[in-house]
């Protein structure tokens, strides 16, 4: 709170106007529309619209495809978070040990942040191309027949790897920052008491990283739920057999490709609720961080 302020009453509104107009027109109004639409149902020709209360929501809960997409999203998010955070933690702990050369390694590790998800998808899609890709060629030698066009497991693996690859750099930077905030004296004291590197990591470093780890888990889940649309759209298109159809892709497919507006709107509203919960969790974490 500022003690010294300006008394003008009109000026602040002029300063806020651009942001508020954009927010109202492109955020709040469409969100309200989505909520309204989720209670409506159009007939097949778009001639009649009727108010159906929670019918769209109930239909979703009874829809096997929607439930499957919910499960797919959960598996996808958890796999991407685990894979990219695991790799990033290993790299961050290594960089943290270095006295020299740490900046060079950091530069070489952070640039994938700048690569668009859709491009990350296309890069790995090329590497895993069943006919000419390099990895299927190597896998074939050990007797595994890779084909993400037909096998659900392979398709999921492909999108997980592409999404995790892009996210490693982000997690890496935050883990490095987290490691640097742990006082060296703690680790030194443990070393003098005879604790080896593994024991020090398990009993001191990792527990003290808990806030960072938790924060990154939330960020990674949010990332996989929304920002990975490009990866799915460009590589698997949600297939095969909807094995990689995550919630966000289903909203798009039902709303734009199948033109089932009521259902798509109801899905949007559910997803908004999920984002609100995730954002709240994130903010509680930040409040705690500020408190110490």
């Amino acid at each position: 709170m500022k003690r010294t302020i300006f008394g003008n009453q009109v000026l602040p509104w002029l300063l806020l106007a651009p942001q508020l107009v954009v927010t109202l027109v492109f955020f709040l109004w469409p969100a309200a529309q989505a909520i309204w639409q989720s209670f409506l149902r159009e007939d097949a020709f778009g001639l009649n619209t009727s108010f159906v209360w929670f019918l769209n929501y109930r239909a979703l809960l009874n829809d096997g495809d929607y439930m499957a997409a919910l499960g797919t999203t959960a598996i996808f998010s958890v796999s991407v978070a685990a894979l990219s955070m695991g790799l990033a933690l290993g790299l961050a702990v290594s960089v943290d040990r270095l006295v020299k050369r740490a900046p060079l390694y950091t530069t070489l590790l952070v640039w994938p942040y700048a690569v668009a998800p859709v491009i990350a998808g296309i890069l790995w899609w090329f590497i895993f191309n069943p006919t000419i890709g390099i990895l299927p060629y190597l896998l074939d030698r050990v007797g595994y027949d890779w084909n993400h066009r037909l096998q659900s497991g392979d398709a999921m693996m492909l999108v997980v790897i592409a999404a995790a690859w892009k996210q490693v750099s982000y997690n890496f930077l935050f883990f490095v920052a987290g490691l640097q905030s742990i006082p060296a004296s703690l680790r030194e004291a443990a070393a003098i008491d005879g604790a080896g590197p593994v024991k020090r990591f398990a009993t001191i470093t990792f527990p003290l990283l808990a806030p960072t780890t938790f924060f990154l888990m939330v960020v990674n889940v949010t990332y996989t739920m929304f920002d990975t649309f490009g990866i799915i759209d460009a590589t698997t298109g949600g297939g095969p057999n909807q094995a990689t159809t995550i919630l966000i892709y289903k909203i798009y497919a039902d709303g734009f490709l199948a033109l089932n507006l009521g259902s798509s709107a109801a899905q949007s509203v559910i997803l908004m609720a999920i984002v609100i919960v995730l954002t709240m969790i994130q903010f509680r974490y930040i409040e705690k961080k500020v408190a110490y």
């Binding site: 927010t23 955020f27 109004w29 469409p30 969100a31 929304f226 966000i248 949007s268």
Partner: peptide, 15 residues
């Protein structure tokens, strides 16, 4: 303004 944080474009794409 705060609420916009919770409304990524992908979520309200159709409207």
């Amino acid at each position: 303004i705060f609420v916009t944080l919770m409304l990524p474009v992908e979520v309200r794409i159709v409207p």
